[in-house]
């Protein structure tokens, strides 16, 4: 993390260890000096300002902090940031291009797959990972793939619909390209 001016309010003391790590976040290499105990979710949110990754439960249960780690969904609230050194991380902020939403994002809006929006980034990233390995999932495939992500608002039915909507759109797009 580079900053023009970083006030050290109180001397953290010589015994506070730091480590330099380089992580590719949404395609961009970010190099930061961090305490080894810093969680990846906190680095993303507080360090890099990517607040789309939410922390819900702190125990790897709710999945609001889900990000893609080398393309696979992981819970960033229980991974140390130093473990991500040299790896590729994708957050919700990396899903859309400047002009176009990812089909999963479109699907969630189209099918009312979200209400309060707190679980949505993690839900969408887990869905994206599913569709990348299985472009034609069944309803059960979707439910199983998202079973590590809790939602308190929707009852999941519309989330499942959203993912199936996105799958269909992605298949149609890929078909056209081929």
């Amino acid at each position: 993390m580079t900053s023009l001016y970083n006030e050290v309010a109180a001397d953290p003391g010589a015994d506070t260890p730091t480590r330099r790590v380089s992580i590719t976040v949404n395609g961009e290499q970010r190099t930061v000096d961090i305490e080894p105990r810093l969680l990846l979710a906190h680095l993303l949110r507080q360090g890099l300002g990517l607040t789309g990754t939410h922390t819900g439960c702190d125990t790897t249960n709710c999945g609001a902090c889900t990000v893609l780690f080398d393309g696979r969904p992981i819970k960033s609230c229980t991974m140390l940031a130093v473990q991500a050194d040299g790896h590729d991380v994708e957050t919700v902020e990396g899903m859309a291009t400047a002009s176009e939403l990812h089909p999963v994002q479109e699907g969630f809006k189209e099918c009312h797959g979200l209400q309060c929006g707190f679980c949505t980034p993690g839900m969408m990233l887990a869905s994206k990972a599913l569709l990348e390995r299985n472009p034609n999932p069944t309803e059960d495939d979707v439910r199983w793939a998202l079973s590590g992500n809790l939602c308190r608002c929707t009852g999941y039915q519309n989330i499942v619909k959203s993912v199936l909507w996105a799958a269909e759109k992605m298949r149609a797009e890929n078909g056209e390209e081929a």
């Binding site: 789309g52 902020e93 994002q105 969630f108 809006k109 979200l114 707190f118 949505t120």
Partner: peptide
């Protein structure tokens, strides 16, 4: 409201 939530731009 979905326009910001699906982009991770909600402000909690």
């Amino acid at each position: 409201e979905d326009n910001r939530f699906i982009r991770g731009k909600g402000k909690y």
